[in-house]
Lab assay of single mutants.
Amino acid sequence: TTVVVGNKKYTFDNPEAAEKFAKKVAKKLGATVHKTNGTFKVK
């Protein structure tokens, strides 16, 4: 599962961990999490 934050990509074996990370980053940046085909995008 990939999490994309700006131009950085983070890969997780565990989708739950990926989602948690994405939400944490989004909260910090005041952004939102978008899920597309198993990829979480923070923007």
Rank of each mutant, 00 (worst) to 15 (best):
N37D: 13
G38I: 03
V4Y: 14
V42S: 02
K20Y: 10
D13S: 12
F12L: 03
K35Y: 15
V33D: 01
A31E: 04
K41T: 15
K28N: 07
K8A: 10
V25E: 04
A26F: 01
G38Q: 05
D13R: 09
A17M: 12
D13E: 10
G6T: 03
K27P: 02
K23M: 14
V5T: 03
L29F: 07
V42L: 04
K20Q: 11
V25G: 01
V25M: 08
G30A: 04
N14E: 08
F40P: 04
L29W: 07
A22W: 02
V33Y: 06
N37F: 03
G38T: 04
F21A: 02
T2E: 08
A22I: 03
T11I: 14
V5A: 03
F40Q: 05
T32A: 07
K35F: 15
E16A: 11
T39I: 15
T39D: 15
G6R: 06
K24W: 14
V4K: 06
E16Y: 10
V25W: 09
P15Q: 10
T2W: 11
A18E: 00
Y10I: 05
T36H: 12
H34E: 15
K24G: 08
K23H: 14
D13A: 12
K43L: 15
T32V: 13
A17P: 04
V33M: 04
T1L: 06
K23I: 14
G6L: 07
T32P: 04
L29V: 05
K27T: 07
A18C: 02
L29R: 03
T32N: 06
V42H: 02
T32R: 07
Y10L: 05
T39K: 08
K24M: 14
V33G: 01
T39V: 14
E16T: 09
K35I: 11
V42P: 04
L29N: 03
F21N: 00
V3H: 00
A22K: 01
Y10D: 00
A22P: 00
V3Y: 00
T1K: 06
K41D: 15
E16P: 05
T11C: 14
N7M: 10
A17L: 13
K28M: 12
T36I: 15
T2N: 11
K9Q: 11
T1I: 09
K23R: 11
A31M: 14
N14S: 11
Y10P: 00
A31C: 05
P15A: 12
L29Y: 07
T36E: 15
G38L: 04
A18G: 06
A22G: 03
K8Y: 11
A26E: 02
V42G: 02
N37W: 03
V5Q: 01
K9F: 11
H34T: 14
V5D: 00
K24Q: 10
F21W: 12
N7R: 13
H34R: 06
T32S: 08
K8D: 05
T36F: 11
T36D: 14
K23Y: 15
A22V: 04
H34D: 10
T11R: 13
K43N: 12
K9T: 14
A17T: 12
V4N: 06
G6N: 06
T32I: 10
H34W: 06
A31H: 08
D13F: 10
E16D: 12
E19P: 02
K23V: 13
V42Q: 01
K9W: 11
K23T: 13
K28D: 07
V33A: 03
V33S: 02
K27Q: 10
G30L: 03
A17C: 09
G30D: 05
L29Q: 04
A31V: 07
V25P: 00
E19T: 04
K43F: 15
T39R: 08
N7H: 11
V4T: 08
A18S: 02
T36Y: 12
K41A: 14
A22Q: 00
P15Y: 14
P15C: 13
T39L: 11
T11H: 13
V5P: 00
V33Q: 02
K35N: 10
E16H: 11
A26W: 00
V5K: 01
H34C: 14
K23W: 15
L29M: 09
N14L: 08
F12A: 00
V4Q: 10
L29H: 06
V4A: 06
D13Q: 11
A22S: 03
K8S: 08
T39W: 10
G30V: 03
F12W: 03
T1G: 11
N14P: 02
K23Q: 14
V4R: 06
V25R: 03
D13H: 09
A18Q: 00
T32D: 05
V42A: 01
F12M: 02
K35D: 05
T39Q: 15
T11Y: 15
N14Q: 07
V5I: 12
N7W: 11
K41W: 15
K24L: 11
K28F: 12
E19D: 05
F40Y: 09
V5M: 04
A26Q: 02
A18K: 00
K35L: 14
K43E: 15
E16G: 11
V42K: 02
L29D: 02
K41M: 15
H34V: 15
V3K: 00
F12I: 02
G38N: 09
V3N: 00
F21K: 01
A22T: 02
K35T: 07
L29K: 03
A17Y: 11
L29E: 03
V4S: 07
V3F: 00
K23F: 14
K20A: 13
A18P: 00
G38V: 02
A26M: 02
Y10S: 02
F21V: 03
A17Q: 12
V25K: 03
F21H: 02
F12N: 00
T1E: 03
N14G: 07
K23E: 12
N37A: 06
K27A: 11
E16R: 11
K35A: 07
K9D: 05
N37P: 05
T2K: 09
K41G: 07
T32C: 12
F40G: 04
K27L: 10
G38Y: 04
Y10E: 00
K43C: 15
Y10C: 06
T36P: 02
V42N: 02
T32G: 06
Y10R: 03
